[in-house]
Design a protein around this nucleic acid. Structure first.
Lengths: 335, 335
DNA sequence: GGCCTCGGTCGAAGCGCTTCGACTCCACTC
DNA sequence: GAGTGGAGTCGAAGCGCTTCGACCGAGGCC
């Protein structure tokens, strides 16, 4: 491995000069800079990450904690993770992948070892056990998701209350009066995952305002579960004409079952989904939906981290505004 | 941050003794060990990762390159990535997440900076441009996937040729004589992704052996693409009674379209999928399938890395044996 | 013309850890 | 009773980098 010292010798300057060429923290004459850069090229020099971290006490690594569970829709997680990794690189950072398995201990380990300059936590619960540790580790952190107490924390998330409201508004505007909400798996609510509860809150509030009746049912993915849930919904509320679905794995089963039951979409029932664009456009009926901006969330969280790391950031909650796109699955309520 | 020296002072020993307690590389008396461990606990000491990497020239980090593209089935990627991260931890390693975006340059950067002790590459193409760089970086590496030239490389993958053969064998055994293969998106073949081509090779070889006629068609995911592909298949081979599907995003559309066309599964046509268990069991018809052992692949690749890093490994290609599980989507060919 | 300023460069002191050789006991052996 | 060997500990020398203060000319100023 080529070292700084070798580059310095090759270029006929001191080691510190090479370091300053690399970091740009002091001005360097054009001729020296060129000479040094040429030597770097020629020798194929790469700074040693460990030495750099030790000397500067900054590792240029951001730790990303992804949930281990797979009851969430995986592609969204992946899209966020990839967006985080990609935009981290554009800011000169690498990303360390931590799974939830290690649990809160991971926070302590990473903070203690100075392995990462900052952490991004995904899948934050309302009362997340990692948060106290995080707060008194003093490390820079950004959450994707919204805990109940956000004091001293920076959070990025889709505004799920507004999302829920938007869905109801759309259906109410079309004249629907009885709306069923097909939610995430029951376990998601039991964990008190913020986004799921907040969506329902938003839905209820707007429903009250617009005079829509709401029936909310958690639902596992897959056909069997959906069949059961759907049956019970129509038993309880035969007049249901609108569906709001917040569970990607339930979308296709729902459309299928409705079709099998002879209920046409959107003539007899309207469906609005909260899901990634890809799911909405590739479904058997092109879905009216509110998109989950996974990329944007990943990107923004990195930008927040970088801002805080460079002293510019403030603790704040950034809620991304939901956008509803009308497609083929929603229409006027039948008379 | 607490340092080794502070722990040493607190325990009344020298710094090197603390280091040896931590690493176990020299014998330490029980009483000293206890005293040191107690001090570590009490002070909340965590070794500094950078210093450790610098002094020992090992970072205890494994870099994982995941593909950026999303034309592959994302959950499988994610499952592998998570399995890698999880099993890496059980061996004392952390995982650095690299996206394909940076391309081959990432290999150079990581190897040059000694940021990672080893690399795991996913989504390897037959003639992958990262491989030459990898070879002469001299770094430890394991590929998930199989390039055309494996010399000097360790690879882990499902045995896709055997997988293809297994599917044909199953259908042939049930009496099917005309089988259509619904493949990955055309782009996947154009990239010469090993697994896709190898599957088809395995299918063709076994088809020849068993006297089955094969029609192979790449297919994008989604309903529209599947409808077109399916139409063309039955135009060309009206006698088709068996399907092998290697494209998760095509599974559900295929089942649906068959149903709509009045072709019953498995009475009129049989379907065998190559997909994760979850897809197979959650589909509208429980699918006879060969599972993609994502977890196993992730785990094995880490084990190979650790073996090589501790001097035990040998360069070798490890192909996991495919397992076909019969479920409700395949049956005897109609007479 | 002396003085100050400032751009450009260097030397040296660490950053916190690992590891090698050396040293000290102490229990044996012959 | 000197010699041997192993267990247990220490000191010191780095690992490769960043960064601080110092130094040295070259202008600009009065």
């Amino acid at each position: 491995m080529v070292t700084l010292a070798e580059v310095a010798q090759h270029a006929g300057v001191s080691a510190s000069t090479v370091s300053y060429v690399l970091s740009g923290k002091r001005s360097i004459s054009a001729s020296t800079r060129e000479r040094v850069e040429h030597s770097i090229q020629q020798l194929g020099y790469h700074p040693n990450a460990g030495a750099r971290a030790l000397a500067s006490s900054r590792s240029n690594i951001i730790a990303l904690m992804v949930p281990l569970r797979t009851d969430m829709y995986v592609p969204v997680m992946m899209e966020i993770a990839i967006a985080v990794a990609t935009s981290a690189r554009t800011h000169g950072y690498d990303v360390l992948l931590l799974t939830g398995e290690e649990g809160p201990a991971a926070v302590r380990r990473i903070a203690g070892s100075s392995l990462a300059d900052a952490m991004i936590l995904m899948d934050v619960e309302l009362h997340d056990e990692r948060l106290p540790l995080l707060r008194d580790s003093g490390r820079t952190a950004v959450l994707i998701g919204l805990p109940s107490d956000t004091s001293g924390l920076t959070c990025v998330d889709l505004d799920f209350e507004a999302t829920g409201a938007l869905c109801v508004d759309h259906l109410a505007g079309l004249g629907h009066r009885e709306v069923a909400v097909i939610g995430e798996a029951a376990a998601v609510y039991e964990r008190h995952t913020g986004f799921a509860e907040r969506t329902v809150d938003g839905i209820r509030a707007k429903a009250q305002e617009t005079g829509v009746r709401i029936l909310h049912r958690p639902c596992e993915g897959g056909y069997a579960a959906m069949a059961g849930t759907l049956g019970r919904i129509f038993d309880e509320r035969p007049g249901t004409t609108g569906f709001i679905v917040q569970n990607e794995a339930a979308v296709e089963p729902l459309l299928n079952l409705l079709q099998q039951q002879g209920r046409a979409v959107p003539e007899d029932v309207s469906v609005v989904a909260i899901c990634p664009e890809q799911v909405a456009t590739q479904a058997s009926v092109r879905l009216t939906s509110v998109a989950i901006p996974a990329q944007e969330m990943g990107r923004r969280s990195v930008e927040q981290v970088v801002a805080k790391l460079t002293g510019r950031g403030t603790d704040e909650v950034e809620l991304l505004e939901p956008v509803l796109t009308v497609r083929a699955s929603s229409g006027p309520a039948p008379v």
